[in-house]
Design a protein around this nucleic acid. Sequence first.
DNA 1: CGTAAAGCCGAAACCGGTTTCGGACGCGAT
DNA 2: ATCGCGTCCGAAACCGGTTTCGGCTTTACG
Lengths: 363, 363
Amino acid sequence: MEEIRDTNSQDQTAPARRVRISDLATALGLTKSTVSRALNDYADIAPDTRERVRTMAAQMGYAPMPYAQAVRTGRVRALGLVLELDAPDRYGPFLADFLGGITQEASLEGWTLTIASSTSRADMEATLARLLQEHKVDGFILPRTRIHDPRALFLRAKGVPFVLYGRVGYGQPDPGLSWYDVDGRGAMRDGVARLVALGHKRIAFVGPCEAYNFAMLRRDGYRDGLALAQIAHDPALEIMGVSDRAEGAAAARALLDLPDPPTAIVYATDATALGAYDVARERGLTIGRDLSLIAYDGIPEGRMIEPPLTTFAVDSRHAGERLAALLIAQLRGAPVADLTELVSAQLQPGGSDGPPVFTKRET
Amino acid sequence: MEEIRDTNSQDQTAPARRVRISDLATALGLTKSTVSRALNDYADIAPDTRERVRTMAAQMGYAPMPYAQAVRTGRVRALGLVLELDAPDRYGPFLADFLGGITQEASLEGWTLTIASSTSRADMEATLARLLQEHKVDGFILPRTRIHDPRALFLRAKGVPFVLYGRVGYGQPDPGLSWYDVDGRGAMRDGVARLVALGHKRIAFVGPCEAYNFAMLRRDGYRDGLALAQIAHDPALEIMGVSDRAEGAAAARALLDLPDPPTAIVYATDATALGAYDVARERGLTIGRDLSLIAYDGIPEGRMIEPPLTTFAVDSRHAGERLAALLIAQLRGAPVADLTELVSAQLQPGGSDGPPVFTKRET
DNA sequence: CGTAAAGCCGAAACCGGTTTCGGACGCGAT
DNA sequence: ATCGCGTCCGAAACCGGTTTCGGCTTTACG
């Protein structure tokens, strides 16, 4: 152990003597300006000099101090993320994966993630402004986009780079933005198609607050699915504004109490779909037989419950990775217009969907 | 809207012309060195000069650039947190609260939070070293302490300030460390006492992997409770190494299959206690009557399930706040020995505990 | 009234880099 | 041999602060 750490033990004895660019310069017999330009790929440096500097830097373990660079360049190589603490669903269990994805990708490129939080929507802008004013970050990742997102407007007005998790401007997409999104619309369409294939004809939809962009998209996907199956859209079977398990249960009750109840419900989120399990237990219904469910998100509880929830799973870690990559690319000067990615959710079959049983009247 | 933003719109026209310390100095008719010392509470500045500088700084909206300061001071006013992505329980739903607590408290003091992640234990030290080497953080918050925590050793050897969420060194507490912890031992003791008061005499315990410090402490709390009630400790009723719901269920089965099964189980974590609900459903037992449960954590699922889980809830947000405060205090030079906090978990009564029914033999 | 000790501020170096500018040198063409 | 041009590197300014040092005023005191 002692021998292995020999090179380090010099640091121990001479504690924290980190190698600076001037050390490198004297070791090479160059000036620090030349070394700096060699490391930053300036054109006026001879190729073999550049190489000499590179190898010596690696050998001596030189690493520039980001903040010393920042004094001149104004860039700190840090990504910013502001969590909304007042959000209804608190990010659920995805946050760890999401953060893991961002930080892993960022560290690969030598960037870090700085996070802050806001307790209210008004607070949000102040928090963004503070991080900016202190130059703690170079750009932002904005999760949970709304249809009209004030954060995006605010940052764009300031000329600060950012990337969105989810699109904004439902119906009229904004070309000047960079985003990553999961195709919730396609997933909902496929979900309806799957239920139709099983024989369902009355299929309901339960979605969240309409202010969120994804809510509208998923609802549209549901309608797409109906249209593709040539099933008429019944407004009574579409309930919006549902954001947690209890409200999901209430929605299920309301739907089952209709004169002509649905045999299947597509939920826009897993968390709300769990409410249907509660209602099924209340009424003695068997999920997957008396009532079929398909949802979206892929939360762990969905796999634990009996029968497991059929859902379209979102890969939060991948989302984090790609968002970080997109933002870094943007900060490096890539044109914003090219920086969009749409991926599809992955179907995770459970036991919550099956062929319908027609207890009341047949169609 | 336009009028309200009038003061900001000046920034719009003269974009990003931030006020530097030299601007302040010329406006005041002082030199920047004097201004700097006035703002940093140096003793050799006249009180009224200090005040004059303060008010002018506020008026002109001066805010120092942290990284410019850092070049000289070596402090970036950033807290570091490294998430372990390979942890068994993925932080569950607490992460958002925890992060919220840290960032809220940190931003109050003008600090920010930088996070990174490690995919393995070996990776962890490399990640810590990288953040340190790049001077991205001044100190660390270390969650999930183990009995022998390599991170603590590593950072202490480097002389880097840090604070632990949870204590280390079970049995032989280390005086040179700063930590915040929730008294899991006391909670488990009280949990046993509560069950004893209800009439239980055979009380089991299910705990997680013994490498974690909190696992040992909670187990000790269970034993404390038995001792206080003068109940002999039966090793057969104590199962360790249980970390998720399925394993919690397996433990419950094992306990119920004993020749003299327990009437109550104390689980060290809510997540594992949920497994007992599954077993109860399998065997037609009623939780809270045929089998009583008390657990620890306060996860949301525990409140949703029927009957709600009686548990000792941990306030993750408060933990984050206090950890940030402790670390900042330490970074400001407070003696490490004083920086420890032990809070008690709050009992959250549910319906999972009740008087025992003696189906087999009476005692 | 003289002098030493505070009190208070300015000048300049410094932190670790980046960037601009200009000059030395080598080379081919005239 | 001279000129011109391109290549390559050094010198020095710069970024936005902090900190050391020294000197000029006051004040306290003998």
